[in-house]
Design a protein around this nucleic acid. Structure first.
Lengths: 122, 122
DNA sequence: GTAAACATTCTCATTAATGTCAGGGTCAAG
DNA sequence: CTTGACCCTGACATTAATGAGAATGTTTAC
């Protein structure tokens, strides 16, 4: 499919799809006229990129982890390109875990605060 | 304490401390000479700001949630300034929970991937 | 009282993720 | 063949979070 259709199906602007290609997290083919051509799996990939970006990842982190996340259902390890840098991956993992931690602590605090107000208001 | 000391004690540059004031998440007093003056609790507050920023919050989100997080140990609800917008808070809570979710799913996937490689490599 | 250390404000620069617009190709429908 | 919809590249703008520097005032310590 061409960029417009992918954009429509993912809710992401063509501009951003081109950007994602530019930073190396999306790799469309080019047809002879120069148009970008995306396969069906691109849809899910783009959605995952969005999800990760909204969770606060940078495109650089995504470039590191996405290869190992993509298509995780039907893929054997052998399919993986040469092995993304495992140490980098472990590092990302640590950073993700720290973030989860911070988020959980703060979620707790906000919940407690809200509950206190709700109790008081009732 | 003055800005330099707070910077030293938190590892945050004076530049950023001024920035945090500018965006309304840090509120030093001013002494007669115009110098910013911070109280002891500012240290922890700054550290929390850093933590939240590193977890991917924006200063705007922090402005919303920090009032209800700050000093959460020794504070009665009554001390809270008029009540930060409870609905905004619930919204932030939802967003935090979605992020935790995304993060956890991806942590899982990365761990599985790493484990697979380690098993294979062994 | 002069110099060093630290403060102030203001301005400009940078990176990441986006938006927007301009100048041009491509293609399908009429 | 022309028009309209869609694609391409490239350039410039913006917001957030930072860094860096200039020009200037204040405090400290000799």
């Amino acid at each position: 499919m061409k960029i417009g259709e992918l954009a429509a199906r993912t809710g992401v602007t063509p501009r951003l799809l081109r950007y994602y290609e530019q930073v190396g997290i999306l790799h469309p083919f080019r047809s002879s006229n120069g148009y970008r051509t995306y396969g069906e799996p691109a849809v899910e990939r783009v959605l995952q990129i969005r999800e990760l970006l909204e969770a606060g990842f940078t495109t650089e982190m995504i470039r590191e982890v996405l290869p190992c996340l993509a298509d995780s259902d039907h893929r054997a390890l052998g399919d993986c390109p040469v092995v993304a840098d495992l140490d980098g991956l472990r590092h990302q993992l640590g950073s993700i875990e720290r973030r989860i931690d911070t988020l959980q602590r703060n979620r707790q605090a906000i919940k407690a605060y809200l509950r206190a107000w709700e109790d008081a208001g009732a």
